[in-house]
Each structure stands twice: as structure tokens, then as C-alpha cells.
Amino acid sequence: MTFRLRNHRRSVGILAAASVALALTACSDNDSDGEDAASGADSSAVETAGTFPQTVSTKFGDVTVDEQPTRVVALGWGDAETALALGVQPVGASDWLAFGGDGVGPWLEGAYKESPEIIGTMEPEFETIASLEPDLILDVRSSGDQDRYDKLSEIATTVGVPEGADSYLTPRKQQVDMISTALGLPDEGDELNDSYEAMVSGIRDDHPEWADKTAATVALSSEGWGAYIRGSERYDTLLDLGFQEHETLAE
């Protein structure tokens, strides 16, 4: 099942399809002719200038970003894609799905002007991160581990998970809100979220029959089969597309 969004084809059957669609929409929208680049910023990393200071509320307290970040490291699941969607190219990023290369799927092929340093996911290499000299670290959808956050915060200003979103359960909209605010681009974040809502609304209208069907997202691990629940983007995307929550999962 595929759909077209602003001249880009995306599969809604893939993992985290919502974030992917947002990223590609904004990649086309936020192309800069150079006039919008932040004064004194590395134009290869920041295409859209933000407004500062900005404050983001997280599980670890409020985080204030005082000025335009020019060297961003994006570690959380989908954080790099969100930054790219907002016109900011991370100098370091984690490859959660082991795509290789720039750490993003084929739907974002060519999005980077310069390949980022690929950082480990569950166990990031803190020395490597420090060597990149970041002025902002995004870890918005991650484990929410205090030790991880403390080590990252020693390197640079770090935006961690929101309250109640441990174990990679940061909602899609909140992830966009937090990252866009940290980058000084809250209005652009609102536009991304509005684009997503319009996209899934259109898909629901095209497939009214899905409203009568339940859905589940399952995975096989070394411990056996498991199912994702509401709060996981894998599952929430299906619900956004019009499917009903599976009774067993709801319980």
C-alpha cells in the first residue's frame, strides 16, 4: 500500500511511517537558498535559522537552548529524521534500523549533504560524541535512562525524553514539538504535525472500511512473539490510519 505526498512516494506499511512522511515533506519544503541560513552557522548543518532562547520540558527538567545550535547530534529513534525535516543536518546520528550509510532508509536517500558520524544506539560511544563537539544533543525518543542522560549532558545541552515516555514511548507529535522547539523552529514543527494530520485524514477517508477492523503490530524476538501497545509509534500509526485497537492489547 503506497501513497503520494508532495511528489514523494512512501510506504505506510513500514516501521514509523508517520515520521518518514513528515521528514520527506519538510525536506522538500525547507530547502534553503542560503538567505535563511543562521548567521555564522555551518550552512551544511543548518539550513533554517531559528529564534532563541527556547525552553523544552523533559523528564529531567526544563532545558533551555540559548542560541542557534550549529552542530547537532541526534541519538533518539527518529530524532535525526525529524531534524532533517526541519532543515537541520545532524553531524552525528544513530542508525536504529541498521540501514548502513547515513543511517536512514531509502525514503531519505540523499537528504544529507555530508554524511553524519554514526553513533551506537543502545550504548552510544560518548567519546565519539564528544569529539564531534556538539552544541545540542537530541535524545528525545530513547530509553529515558538517567545515567545515559547525565553522561550526554556533560558533553552538551541535551534534550531527553518527556515525562512518562521512558522505553522509546515518546509520542510522534511530542517528539516533533520538542525537537522543533529545541531548534528554534516551533512554527515549522506545527506545520509538520499539521501535514501529518492531513495525510492520515486523507488516507482514512480513502479507506473507510478500516474503521471496522482491528490491528496489531507484533515482533519476534529471542524470547518469543510480542505485541506493541498504544504509545508505540508502530501501533499508533495504524490507529491514526483508522484501524481500531485490538481488544487484547487494550487490556
Score class of each variant (00 low, 15 high):
Ala215Ile: 11
Asp66Gly: 10
Gly92Ser: 05
Ser143Asn: 01
Gly92Met: 11
Leu185Gln: 08
Pro116Asn: 05
His246Asn: 11
Ile155Gln: 00
Leu108Gln: 09
Gly40Glu: 03
Leu15Arg: 12
Asp33Lys: 10
Asp31Leu: 08
Ser167Val: 02
Val91Phe: 09
Leu97Ala: 11
Leu136Ser: 01
Gly103Ile: 13
Asp150His: 04
Trp96Thr: 00
Trp96Ile: 07
Thr170Cys: 04
Val65Arg: 12
Lys173Thr: 12
Thr58Trp: 01
Asp62Trp: 01
Ser195Trp: 05
Ser115Gly: 12
Thr64Pro: 02
Ser19Asn: 13
Phe52Pro: 14
Val63Thr: 03
Gly224Thr: 00
Thr2Ala: 08
Ala41Tyr: 06
Pro208Ile: 02
Gly50Tyr: 07
Glu35Lys: 09
Thr121Ser: 09
Gly224Met: 04
Glu188Cys: 07
Gly160Ile: 01
Glu191Val: 05
Thr128Leu: 10
Arg230Asp: 15
Val56Met: 02
Thr55Phe: 02
Phe126Arg: 03
Arg141Ser: 08
Ala23Ser: 15
Pro134Asn: 00
Glu109Cys: 02
Thr157Met: 10
Ala49Leu: 07
Arg148Thr: 01
Ser201Pro: 10
Val56Pro: 04
Arg230Gln: 09
Ser39Trp: 11
Gln54Arg: 14
Asn7Ala: 02
Trp96Tyr: 14
Gly231Phe: 03
Glu163Ser: 06
Arg234Met: 05
Tyr112Asp: 01
Glu188Thr: 02
Asp135Glu: 01
Glu114Pro: 03
Thr70Ala: 15
Ala216Cys: 06
Val20Trp: 07
Asp79Lys: 04
Pro124His: 03
Pro106Ala: 08
Met1Gln: 09
Ala111Arg: 07
Ala26Asn: 07
Ala38Leu: 10
Asp177Gly: 04
Asp135Cys: 00
Pro106His: 09
Tyr149Met: 04
Val20Met: 08
Ser221Met: 11
Gly231Thr: 04
Val12Tyr: 10
Val73His: 05
Glu35Pro: 06
Val20Tyr: 13
Thr157Lys: 06
Tyr149Phe: 12
Ser221Lys: 08
Glu251Gln: 02
Val63Tyr: 03
Ser201Leu: 11
Asp205Gln: 08
Trp77Asn: 09
His246Pro: 12
Gly50Ala: 06
His207Met: 04
Glu233Leu: 08
Ala26Thr: 02
Glu209Arg: 03
Gly164Leu: 02
Leu108Asp: 08
His8Arg: 15
Thr58Val: 07
Ala211His: 12
Glu209Trp: 00
Val161Cys: 03
Asp135Gly: 06
Ala17Ser: 13
Leu5Arg: 14
Asp79Pro: 01
Ala21Asn: 10
Phe60Trp: 08
Leu183Thr: 01
Ser115Tyr: 03
Leu152Ile: 00
Val159Leu: 04
Pro90Cys: 07
Glu127Gln: 15
Glu251His: 03
Ser143Asp: 02
Ala23Thr: 15
Ser167Thr: 09
Ser180Tyr: 03
Ile179Ala: 03
Ala215Arg: 05
Asp145Asn: 12
Leu22Gly: 12
Ala21Val: 12
Tyr149Asn: 00
Asp187Gln: 14
Asp236His: 01
Ser153Asp: 09
Thr237Leu: 12
Asp150Ala: 13
Arg141Leu: 05
Gly13Ile: 01
Ala38Arg: 13
Asn193Lys: 10
Gly76Cys: 02
Ser32Tyr: 10
Ala211Asp: 13
